[in-house]
Design a protein around this nucleic acid. Structure first.
Lengths: 357, 357
DNA sequence: GTGTGTCATGTAATCGGTTACACGGAATTA
DNA sequence: TAATTCCGTGTAACCGATTACATGACACAC
């Protein structure tokens, strides 16, 4: 028993394939009678159009590809969740491919997706990867989210620089002076902007800087945190390049017998879900991650639909918002309970499942 | 400038389309000369085969669909990561579709994937959804991971019952007697097995049971935790149906001024990454989540390839392993630093990015 | 020189949809 | 009644791959 084709449906409904197609795609005129006959046949045969055949004649796949970097964790899974919500709302599918650290792997992933997707969202936070992507994509609409404010190509970036400045200014305002920075890896555009923001804010306040490089992973944050804790000139605050490193550093500081925020204040970046679950709750820069993912997807679909229209090459900027929790300000304690997290709108559809009993 | 087709390549290389196809698919004999000519033309034209056309003639898509439930969080993102690793290794793509809570949504998702994937992994933890899935899938190979030990259909399940028994026995062994259980939502098969395991182990030890239903979310765990903390007959241990609820409960207990594990011991289930990041580190039942995802994908691909062969209807069982951390045993303190987590093999490819500096 | 076998290559049918165009019947108008 | 629209329907070409089968070149043996 092979799967039914449009011809089987046509035979059974006693109409032509064209009519079946018209009913199913909603294009073109059909009488209510044929409509019914077709739908009956469709149900009876459990017919589902062959997407390959359809994509062959329409040259659309209704699928968006997402190229993710090597780094995983909550940031990216939240982002994908948001994209998935947007995709389903628009009738698109999502093909994901993660763990592409270097340009070569990313290029292989893009190649293997060409012809299979209508558009691409590339999250590799390296400049070369981005360049590679645009050149490889050919005529494929592509949306960059690699952290580089890249005019000339449609992209969405977080205001990493501005966020870092906010973080540092907050620490200064709460009386910290020896503020160290755990940066993300060299070559990562997000990491570099955050570092630049830190340096600028510190320079403006005339404070000495300390920078140690991490890898955006919790393990690297732990390592660097332990190292900083052991220094004779121990910092009284640490601004980590992202939340995962901040959490790692927090554990290292606590393991070293230091107390957060009394001995060392701590600020992260991203506001991943666990930021409020660690103790003390982590001060961080909130990016509405799922929302950002969703709007990225919607924008890319707009690009796909508008192929040929006046090129959208805008670089959309997402401004992170400082969320103060006890890791930098003990007074924030009371506010950090597990219910306080404002949900992204992208997660609203899920709330219904959340009232226990 | 339209995308190049196989005919453009054939013309340019001055060979027939058949030869081009033979070179590209690696099937059939070709001389080294034609091979070179074809490859040159392919490079020059930036040719990429149209996957729709290919799938039309081969009736394979090299794509696996994954249907996820409404619940998100680290458990599912880890699972997907593992699947992605496996998929890429086998030359497959992954289409994900999340947030399908009820049977209707899941059914829509499956329908929209038919004809677009070679096989399906269904994670909806409801019995009806599973039944629906198998009936909807038609001839599509399908792998269930819904928590029901379902002979007759290929599936992978966690030994939830056995895991729950281990958890309870561990708590009893460390001197706890008033052990409460925060269960997952009714109708969720995983939740029900874990509950059954709890009840059985408690009955065996002749201890009274307390069960409050949660929703597998951190928020619901918090709510139930607060409620339990306020009871006059406060439990001295809580076994939560999963880690997210355990974390929520932990925060609620701490907010109520209770100390974990001194006042109340806590055990979760799953061993999601944050389980060791909360303080105190959470005792839990480890499932090598990413590994499980990877092997699920590999098994499904085997099913796809072996279409027609003696049906594989085995129900593979994953046995969780008890990981004792300070939330149930203060003596475990020393062992819980951020470096102690044995990585799944599925995450090995990522390790290279993890040495800071 | 003819026959036979091998093997790279080309031709054309095929997969399952969409859609331009042709067609025919009913309704409207002269 | 005949001419003109209008509109639902069918026929067939097309999308871009794969692949069964036919072809023809060449080598080798007789």
């Amino acid at each position: 028993m092979k799967a039914a084709t449009i011809r089987d449906v046509a035979d059974r409904a006693d109409v032509s394939v064209a009519s079946v197609s018209r009913v199913l795609t909603g294009a073109g005129p059909v009488t209510e009678t044929t409509r019914k006959k077709v739908m009956e046949a469709v149900d009876a045969l459990q017919y589902v159009p062959h997407s390959g055949a359809r994509s062959l004649s329409t040259s659309k796949t209704q699928t968006i590809g997402v190229i993710l970097p090597d780094l995983y964790g909550e940031y990216f899974s939240e982002l994908i969740r948001g994209m998935d919500v947007g995709a389903r709302a628009l009738g698109y599918h999502l093909i994901v491919s993660s763990s592409h650290d270097d340009a070569e792997e990313a290029s292989a992933a893009i190649r293997s997706m060409r012809g299979r997707v209508d558009g691409l969202i590339v999250l590799s936070p390296h400049l070369d990867a981005a360049n590679l992507a645009t050149s490889l994509a050919g005529r494929l609409p592509i949306l960059l989210m690699n952290g580089g404010a890249d005019a000339g190509r449609p992209s969405i970036v977080v205001d990493n620089h501005g966020g870092a400045v906010q973080a540092v200014e907050h620490l200064i305002a709460t009386g910290r002076r020896r503020i160290a920075h755990i940066s993300g890896p060299t070559g990562n555009l997000e990491a570099e902007s955050r570092l630049a923001g830190y340096l600028e804010a510190m320079a403006r306040a005339n404070l000495p800087t300390t920078v140690v490089e991490g890898a955006f992973t919790q393990a690297s944050g732990h390592q660097v945190g332990a190292e900083l804790a052991a220094r004779s000139e121990r910092p009284d605050a640490i601004f980590a390049g992202n939340d995962m490193m901040a959490v790692g550093a927090m554990l290292a500081l606590q393991d070293a017998g230091l107390s957060v925020p009394e001995d060392v204040a701590l600020v992260g970046f991203d506001d991943v879900p666990i930021a409020e679950l660690v103790r003390p709750g982590l001060t961080t820069l909130r990016i509405r991650i799922a929302d950002t993912g969703r709007s990225a997807l919607e924008r890319l679909v707009r690009l796909v639909d508008a192929a040929g229209a006046p090129a959208d090459t805008a670089c959309e900027v997402v401004r992170p918002e400082l969320v103060v929790r006890p890791s930098s300000d003990p007074a924030a304690q009371a506010r950090t309970t597990s219910g306080d997290r404002p949900r992204d709108s992208a997660s609203l559809p899920h709330l219904k499942g959340e009232n226990p009993q």
